[in-house]
Design a protein around this nucleic acid. Sequence first.
DNA 1: CAAGGCATGTAAATCGTTACATGATTTA
DNA 2: TAAATCATGTAACGATTTACATGCCTTG
Lengths: 182, 182
Amino acid sequence: MSLPNVILGFLNVEPMTGYDLKKNMDHSTQLFWHAKLSQIYPTLKQLETKGLVKAKVVPQKGKPNKKIYSITKAGRRDLITWLNEPLDESNPIKSAVFLRLFFLGVLDKEDILSQLRCQLEAQRARLKRTRQAEIIIQEAGQTPGLAQQALMWDLLHQLGKLQMQTSVQWFEKAILVVEKRL
Amino acid sequence: MSLPNVILGFLNVEPMTGYDLKKNMDHSTQLFWHAKLSQIYPTLKQLETKGLVKAKVVPQKGKPNKKIYSITKAGRRDLITWLNEPLDESNPIKSAVFLRLFFLGVLDKEDILSQLRCQLEAQRARLKRTRQAEIIIQEAGQTPGLAQQALMWDLLHQLGKLQMQTSVQWFEKAILVVEKRL
DNA sequence: CAAGGCATGTAAATCGTTACATGATTTA
DNA sequence: TAAATCATGTAACGATTTACATGCCTTG
């Protein structure tokens, strides 16, 4: 239900193609939102039909023509309405990792430990990858119209980092506890 | 794709109905997994067809007959295979709250602040509700066959609490930053 | 006496993934 | 020369939500 809103949010920053939208999601929202190209393209068409975005076709040789989408006034209104809506406080999420951990106690000590060690490494790797996001945010902070958004991005990024650090420390502790107590 | 596994995980603890499964999810996994009854019932049927669970019908007056499902040997094998599978390290998640925060910088200062305050309260409320889970976990720790699972549940619960505390503190800070810097 | 809990399900619609289809350009 | 990047899309399938359908019992 939110993919149209995500797209409007990105197009409000600057016009871009479906392909660009995908890359932006991969680089900046992948920790809390993502979509495949096969979902993005049809959604863009729907948004165009509703008059919330409009496309400009740029011919290319050897590739399909680029379709650069930009947000319309109606689209901007829609985006702002969505941002002001109250969020129901339940915040439902699905995490394959947490789910796995929840039932992990079914396994033998050694199998539990190997899963925990594996997830610890994955978590450390995620934490390292945050550098790239930092650079993008700092650049945005320089761009005149984006200073306010960059401030929010910076704050959110700090939260993400804290959460990841908490997770890493927790995995380290969990491994010790399982080693001793089982 | 994981709902069958969640169901097997719960039925491995003790036999129960679809309705009970829903309640268990609402009380213990709601922070990282959930499902509606309209999805649980058909999934139970599929699992029965595959021989991973079996049902015992208990007649009732004035209500539909209870169907108490239990896990089979094949089901237990399936569960353990799943638990040992490697998780792809990308851990894709969707969070409506984070998404909202990501684009919140589009709004005016006062609208940003009212959303942040609202989310801070929601987060505090979530943190308070963790008491109930603590009690359930401690009870499980006493049950002989469940000690090892209860240990994992306790660890996970600690992580959940830490993450929520981190969020609360972050919201408090974010509100101050927005008040001063915008 | 109204609201919520107990207890089952089906049907339709929407959301999301996987697989298919194309093909030039750049990088390793 | 193989793989990745650029760039668009469609079709089939699977996952999930929403709406519909029933009806007693318990609690406030």
